[in-house]
Computed example of a mutant assay.
Amino acid sequence: MSIRLAQTHDAEAISRLSEQLDYSVNPETCAEHIAYMSHHPDVYQLLVLEKDMEVVGYMQLTVVRHIQTQSYVEISALVVDERFRSLGIGSKLIQTAKAWTQELGYERLVVRTNENRERAIRFYSRGGFRELKKQTTFQINF
């Protein structure tokens, strides 16, 4: 297994993996996002994990800057192919996230998950994360 920065040619795999968590993003849009993030490495890290030359997981790390709090790193996305879950891939990605956070000098690593994703909640709890709060998300579509 190896972890590397995502490249635009990974868009198809990332799009496919996103669908496993009910997020629909077409490969073209995905490639645009990858290109943008690659030009801002001080804010984004989009990593893929390969096993036998196949992308079987990805993780997006984002530096979050709010005026009212200290900046921190957030795991904006973490997906492991359902065929390869419970093999330590997610844990390997989390270790990479922790290392990048510390390397940049941030003191907090945050992750959010939907409260109905019980398996993800258990995974993050085992990884040392503690529940901070529950929120309600509002959105307006235009």
Rank of each mutant, 00 (worst) to 15 (best):
S15L: 07
E19G: 03
G105C: 05
G88Y: 07
Y23I: 13
H9K: 13
E115T: 13
L5R: 11
E118S: 12
Q102W: 00
V25H: 06
T69A: 08
V55S: 08
Y72L: 11
F129N: 01
E74H: 03
L104C: 00
Q139G: 05
S91H: 12
T69Q: 13
V111S: 02
I34M: 06
S18M: 08
D22K: 08
D81L: 06
R4V: 04
D81A: 01
E12W: 00
E54N: 11
W100N: 01
D42Y: 03
G128A: 05
Q135K: 05
C30G: 01
E131S: 06
E32T: 08
A77P: 01
F129G: 03
G105F: 04
E107T: 13
K92Q: 15
P41R: 07
S71N: 09
E82C: 12
A13F: 10
R16H: 10
C30E: 14
A13T: 01
V43W: 09
L47I: 10
K92W: 01
D42C: 09
G127K: 06
H66Q: 15
H39Q: 15
E32S: 09
L47V: 04
S71L: 00
G105P: 06
R119G: 12
Q45I: 00
D10Y: 03
E50Y: 02
S18P: 01
G127C: 14
R108L: 14
E50A: 03
T62S: 10
N114R: 14
Y23P: 02
S18L: 12
G128N: 01
I14T: 06
K98F: 03
V63D: 00
E28N: 08
N141L: 14
F142Y: 15
Q95T: 09
H33K: 14
Q95P: 00
E54I: 13
F142H: 08
T8Q: 15
R16P: 00
Q70S: 10
T8M: 13
A13I: 04
H33L: 12
Q7H: 11
V56W: 02
V64A: 02
R108H: 12
G128Y: 05
F123W: 07
V48E: 11
A6E: 13
V79E: 07
P27L: 02
Y106E: 03
E82L: 10
H40W: 02
K92C: 11
